[in-house]
Design a protein around this nucleic acid. Structure first.
Lengths: 70, 70
DNA sequence: GCGCTAATATCCCGATTCGGGATATTTCGA
DNA sequence: TCGAAATATCCCGAATCGGGATATTAGCGC
C-alpha cells in the first residue's frame, strides 16, 4: 500500500525529524509510515492530512486530486 | 474515533452480514469497525469507501461532504 | 576520494491491536 | 411473547505497532 507521505514531505522540504517533532512521533515511525512498513491509525491519518493540507483519499493514493473539501 | 460506517450501511439498508460477504470479512469484524473497537487498515478503508461511494475523509468524519473526487 | 554529519532505514522486543470462531445479547416482526 | 435475524462480545493466537538503539545512506566541503 503505497501512500504519498514522502512526496508531500519532500514538497515541503521537511525532514522526517521535523515532521516527527511537529506531529509528536519518533523519526523511525515517520520513516515506517512513509515506506509503508506500518500504517497510521485514523487519528494520525487525520493529523497527517491536516499537516499537509490534503485529503486522506489523496494521502492514500485513492485520488489524484489533492484538495480537501471540508 | 467515531466513523460513519454504520450510518452508511443503514442508508443502504444493508445488514452487517451482507457487507461482510461483499467485502470478504466476518460479521464480527464489520461490527467492530462500526463501533470503533477496531480500525480498518488502508486497503480495507479504500474498499469501504468504494463500497459506499464516499470519500475516506467523509468515512472518518473529517468532512461533511460525502462526495468522492477521483 | 576522504572524512564528517545529517538524514533515513532497520533491528530488537515488549505492548497493543487485530481477526475468527463461538457465543451472548439485542432487536423486531408476526 | 416467541422466535429468528441482527448485532455485540469473549477468548485467544497471530500480526502489527512503537520506541530506543544502531546501522546504512546521502550529501557536502575540501
Amino acid at each position: 500500500m503505497q501512500n504519498r507521505l514522502r512526496e508531500l514531505r519532500k514538497q515541503n522540504r521537511y525532514t522526517q525529524l521535523k515532521v516527527a517533532l511537529d506531529l509528536n512521533l519518533s523519526q523511525n515511525s515517520v520513516s515506517r509510515y512513509e515506506t509503508g512498513a506500518h500504517e497510521a491509525g485514523y487519528e494520525l491519518l487525520i493529523r497527517f492530512a491536516d499537516y499537509y493540507g490534503v485529503s486522506i483519499d489523496y494521502l492514500l493514493g485513492r485520488t489524484d486530486d489533492p484538495r480537501y473539501y471540508p
